[in-house]
Design a protein around this nucleic acid. Structure first.
Lengths: 100, 100
DNA sequence: CGTCAGTATAGATATAATGCAATATTGTGA
DNA sequence: TCACAATATTGCATTATATCTATACTGACG
């Protein structure tokens, strides 16, 4: 049974937020998003940045894309990824603010 | 093999952040933390607030506690929970900022 | 001590996430 | 068309999460 209260965050918003946040709760995905904060990056750039193998990077990018966090465009044999979920930038900023 | 780059968020910080964030990536836990933002709450208060059964609430509180997100103190038969991880407040604020 | 309210934990089971290796796909250019 | 570079997908084993239900623990009080 879902809630029936007056709450400051609605159930739907909260669910979406949980989905987005869950996506961020992974070191590699966080790392990738951190790179994407500064703009579009190709898979190989991200791979080098995060120092992970290609499959792992592609997999996590697929996860992020499936949840609507990032999107991609192809240019020749390269694929550029970018952040499309604006929450991400703010949450990353939060992490930095909290720890630096 | 971990990274050896100059990155804006260190691996250790990033791992801790991922742990905290992963904890938030769950509707009920988000809801509970939202309630705890305003101060200490007992399990039964949280239970009513989130409209969930007692076991579910206790379980999620245990998860949050195990990860160092909240802490608790007992007073008679009541147990009061509170947020101890300061990131949480900022991240919740983020969620609201993004959607309201 | 027995009981009750409040809270925690355990067990069972289902589902999802990870990590890795192998292989497939797509586009380019000789 | 072949071969190669860049990227994606799949299969599988492992581990972690989620969700219930039932039961146990703890403290107050008569």
């Amino acid at each position: 049974m879902p809630t029936s209260h007056d709450v400051s965050i609605g159930d739907d918003v909260l669910s979406r937020a949980a989905t987005v946040i869950k996506c961020l709760g992974h070191p590699l995905r966080l790392r990738l998003l951190e790179a994407l904060e500064q703009g579009e990056r190709t898979v190989s750039e991200l791979q080098e940045y995060a120092d992970m193998n290609q499959a792992a990077v592609s997999q996590q990018l697929a996860t992020l894309k499936a949840r609507g966090i990032v999107d991609s465009r192809r240019e020749g044999t390269f694929v550029y990824y970018r952040i499309v979920e604006p929450k991400v930038n703010q949450i990353l900023q939060c992490i930095r603010d909290c720890d630096v």
